[in-house]
Design a protein around this nucleic acid. Structure first.
Lengths: 192, 192
DNA sequence: GTCTATACTAAGATAGAC
DNA sequence: GTCTATCTTAGTATAGAC
């Protein structure tokens, strides 16, 4: 690969790391181009050769977050012989990823950053993730949209409560197995 | 009542209304003392006779939101002869309140405003609400903390997905009855 | 690609007069 | 309780040199 491209990519990664660091410490809204530049040893206007705007920085963070999420779940929970067991492992991976970083959870799943909406390319990554999950749900016998929606509410609900009311703990995440058992019983009850 | 007190309260309500209006239109983080003052026909420094700081404004919004929520659920779902039916009505009231205003949901239930934490008085209102709900859950035969936590995750999850992915619609809220039936089956299965 | 310099806008907060 | 005036800080963004 062209070393200039590699260097640029390395710089970009540094910049994004700095932005996430600020977001984790001070909140997503506290990320500023000045502070990011300060941390990587650049001047603020120099960041405009990496992003067209502040919103472009959020977009890059959004895309990076979903790429990491897709890699994470693919690595941690390969397709299993028992699809239900596989779905439990996948859910654990998603939930763990979500609660590990409250700022990331906010950006990826709640979209409460004023003035930011993901670009089409970035949004496609979110859809790719959803497609991955949907396929695993179908493999486990869950294909109706109503059930898929209930599933996303269950996982999202546990993650949101966990970071809002017991950050760093496991008061809600430890209910995952019980919640999934409840969900499976619900799905199976309709088929009977 | 002292008319001066009444006037002050009326002004305060105007100010809070303006703040909520901005929050709904531009997001919670976009609320500024300057813009609030502009909308109510005051100068920005005058707001400091109502709040000690910007954070104090958020605190007043937080307290007002929980007071409205408590009034809302108490009015809409009085104690019912059948506690399970009562719980369904209560849940519908809470969920309706939550999805009616995304900014309010963010402030009351997600706490993602950088630098804001509710005062003790305001937080007591949140606890009062939680106590109200917990009591109704107990009346319906649900008293274990694990089950209470699952309940809050269910309702919160539906509300969050609704405003994030289908604002103004009912794709998730319409699953409430199914989700509660699933939850009741889960609770009853353990007792059997 | 990075810099300096700067334009522009806006924010939270305080002092002191009325 | 509201005002004017002001301090202080900070932000996004652009122009143009190197």
């Amino acid at each position: 690969m062209d070393p200039r491209v590699a260097r640029r990519q390395a710089r970009l990664d540094e910049v994004l790391d700095a932005a996430w660091e600020i977001a984790r410490a001070e909140g997503l809204a506290a990320v500023s181009l000045h502070e990011v530049a300060r941390r990587v040893g650049l001047r603020q206007p120099s960041l405009y050769s990496y992003f067209p705007s502040k919103s472009g920085l959020y977009d890059a963070m959004f895309a990076q977050g979903y790429r990491q999420l897709i890699d994470h779940v693919a690595a941690v929970s390969p397709r299993a012989a028992d699809p239900r067991r596989g779905l439990v492992a996948l859910s654990r991976a998603i939930l763990g990823f979500a609660v590990a970083d409250a700022a990331r959870q906010q950006l990826l799943f709640h979209r409460t950053i004023p003035g930011f909406t993901p670009s089409a390319e970035s949004y496609a990554l979110a859809q790719e993730f959803l497609a991955f999950v949907t396929e695993r749900l179908r493999a486990a016998g869950i294909s109706e949209r109503a059930d898929v929606d209930i599933y996303t509410a269950l996982i999202g609900g546990l993650g949101a409560q966990q970071v809002a009311n017991d950050p760093g703990g496991n008061r809600w995440t430890k209910q995952l197995a019980a919640v999934l058992a409840m969900f499976f019983a619900h799905v199976d009850a309709k088929d009977a």
